[in-house]
């Protein structure tokens, strides 16, 4: 995945996401939204970023063994990088398909796991990249022009 030149970004923030914790799920995205609002990102773009970020965060809570979200902000763009420590996605093409989900019923009862998350991230981001290796982990990079 493309290496980012981090020193070009005015703001960098890292959030640790705990696997399976539905109480704190969404806190990182809430913080990101509040921060970007304060920086003056317009409300329509802010909504796109918040939706994509929250979908990513919920995915980490549901599917991963834990991971982190990194926020990078420059005057022109917002980048959210998501890295988890596994278990990795076997078939990314299938996982990107709307309606396909491997989430168990316990997650569906919570109102998630409809198989919309990855495609919704891609739809809200201006650029979306995903890489995954089974047994290793998943890496997502979302860019938003602001």
């Amino acid at each position: 995945m493309e290496e980012l030149r981090v020193n070009e970004y005015n703001l960098k923030d890292i959030y640790t996401i705990e696997a399976g914790n539905f109480v704190t799920a969404g806190e990182a995205s809430s913080n990101i939204k509040t921060l970007l609002k304060r920086l003056g990102v317009n409300s329509s773009k802010l909504r796109n970023i918040a939706i994509a970020s929250y979908e990513a965060e919920i995915n980490l809570v549901i599917h991963s063994k834990g991971g982190q979200m990194e926020l990078l902000v420059s005057p022109n763009e917002v980048i959210i990088k998501i890295d988890d420590i596994g278990p990795g996605i076997e078939n990314i093409e299938l996982a990107m398909k709307e309606g396909y989900s491997t989430a168990p019923d316990s997650i569906r009862v919570m109102g998630f796991g409809a198989g919309m998350g990855l495609s919704n991230m891609r739809n809200n981001a201006d650029d979306f990249k995903i890489e995954s290796k089974l047994g290793e982990g998943t890496h997502i990079c979302m860019k938003f022009n602001i």
Binding site: G26, K33, R47, Y54, M110
Partner: peptide, 22 residues
């Protein structure tokens, strides 16, 4: 935007979802 969300689901993520979507 500017939507009312009617639901029978009562967990924290309902409010989180509402927050993200304004």
């Amino acid at each position: 935007n500017k939507t009312i969300m009617l639901t029978g689901l009562t967990n924290l993520q309902v409010v989180r979802t509402a927050e993200m979507l304004d």
